[in-house]
Simulated assay, not measured.
Amino acid sequence: MFKPRFVRPFPSSVPALLIAAILTLGLAPTSTLAAPPTVATSIKPVQALVKMVMGSLGDPELVIPATASPHMFALKPSQATTLEQADVVFWIGPDMETTLIGPLDKMAANARVVELMKTPGLRLIHFDEEAQNDDGHAHGNVDPHIWLAPSNGRKMISYIAEVLSEIDPPNADTYAKNAKKARQRITILSRKTMDYVVQMRYTPYLVQHDGYGYLALEFGMNEVGHIQTTPGREPGAKHVADIIELIKSKNVKCLMHEPQFAPKLAERLKQETGIALREIDPMGIHLSLSDTTYVRIIQGIIVSMEPCLQPRAPKQPAQPAPTQ
């Protein structure tokens, strides 16, 4: 049985019942009234959100494996078949899963394609146009990593439930009940995380690419920059020099890198500056699919960041032994 990773690292001062509430808050029992639609999802976080709404009605299929970058992915025949057989496809949008733009038009022509970037009420981060031109963002003028803000996760849950209810009216009540429980679970996640990071907010850190703004905004974290302007592409010499200067001038102690990308540049920066490296996974590579997967993705990121960002009391110098 899988044991969630977020429970053990929490301080003992956090009530045990509150910790357990996140992971034991189950979805409402369902009674299948009709066969649910065949659902395909682009990336693991989207699959996790859709699973929370579908519950025991079924498992949404995943197109892009969590080990791959959605920016640099070649569709295999089996994944193309998943799109062709789907009744509905959920994805973030063309600024995120760039490799799916063509395949969705050709292979999911008979499916309802739902762009979650269009979810009503999302809290969106808009890139500054001048900075966007300078940094060469691979995305458009809006940051598409919307799932990294749990407040956005709650909004997407509601939107997913609405879409599935329109496509599958006989199971609409089940989708609504599951969505309500999912929003409650994410609310508990947000509250616990806010308490957990209270001592971590002031430590400056770097990330591998500009994809964690929502996490920093949601929880008041002190992200000061990123080392890749285009995900998966090594930056030029000037940008590397600027990053080294940033590390030194702001006394940055930690760089968060991702398993989806080679850590070559991160290792170089470690050698040149002594910065500590921590791997964080926004996709949930090692997580099995369940109604807690989305919660565990956010938990896993925060817990992985904690050893670098949690301030430590300075070591006291050893006292000399008393003379006789």
Results as ranks from 00 to 15, higher is better:
Pro45Trp: 03
Ile285Trp: 03
Pro37Asn: 05
Asn110Tyr: 08
Asp173Cys: 03
Leu246Gly: 11
Pro314Gln: 06
Ile186Tyr: 02
Leu289Tyr: 01
Gln324Trp: 03
Lys106Pro: 03
Val114Gln: 05
Tyr212Ala: 10
Met200Pro: 00
Gly58Ser: 15
Ile285Glu: 05
His209Phe: 02
Gln324His: 06
Ala138Glu: 03
Thr174Ala: 13
Tyr212His: 12
Val63Ser: 00
Arg185Leu: 09
Arg8Gln: 04
Ala321Phe: 00
Phe2Trp: 06
His137Glu: 12
Asn152His: 06
Ile243Lys: 07
Gln199Glu: 15
Ile101Cys: 09
Gly121Trp: 04
Gly232Arg: 12
Thr99Lys: 12
His145Asp: 10
Phe73Leu: 03
Val142Trp: 04
Asp105Phe: 07
Lys250Asp: 15
Asp59Ile: 03
Glu115Ser: 12
Pro320Arg: 01
Leu23Ile: 00
Met283Lys: 00
Val88Ala: 06
Tyr202Asn: 15
Pro235Thr: 09
Ser56Tyr: 06
Val7Met: 04
Leu289Glu: 11
Phe261Trp: 04
Asn141Arg: 04
Ile167Tyr: 00
Gly300Leu: 05
Phe6Pro: 05
Thr273Asp: 14
Arg296Val: 00
Ile247Asn: 13
Leu23Asn: 07
Met305Asn: 05
Thr292Asn: 11
Glu166Trp: 07
Leu148Gly: 07
Tyr294Leu: 00
Thr187Ile: 01
Gly211Ala: 15
Ser288Gln: 08
Arg268Phe: 04
Ile244Leu: 13
Arg154Tyr: 01
Val295Gly: 06
Ala28Ser: 15
Arg233Phe: 02
Ala161Trp: 05
Ala318Asn: 06
Gln260Gly: 00
Arg233Asp: 04
Ile227Met: 11
Pro150Glu: 09
Asn178Cys: 00
Asp135Glu: 15
Phe261Tyr: 10
Gly225Gln: 06
Ile275Cys: 09
Phe2Gln: 11
Ile160Pro: 07
Ala48Cys: 05
Gly26Asn: 08
His139Trp: 09
Phe73Ala: 09
Phe219Tyr: 15
Pro11Met: 05
Ala16Phe: 10
Val39Tyr: 12
Lys270Thr: 04
Arg5Gln: 10
Asp134Ser: 11
Asn178Ser: 00
Leu269His: 03
Gln79Ile: 12
Asp87His: 11
Gln271Thr: 06
Ala266Ser: 15
Ile280Ser: 06
Thr82Glu: 05
Leu116Lys: 01
Ser12Phe: 13
Thr119Glu: 13
Pro103Ala: 14
Leu217Thr: 10
Pro11Cys: 10
Leu309Met: 14
Gly220Val: 10
Thr273Tyr: 10
Gln260His: 01
Val207Lys: 10
Gly232Ile: 09
Pro60Val: 01
Leu148His: 09
Glu245Pro: 03
Ile297Met: 11
Val252Thr: 13
Ile243Pro: 07
Lys51Ala: 08
Val39Cys: 12
Asp87Phe: 07
Ser190Trp: 08
His126Ala: 15
Gln310Trp: 07
Glu115His: 04
Ala28Thr: 15
Leu25Met: 10
Arg296Gly: 02
Thr273His: 10
Val88Pro: 01
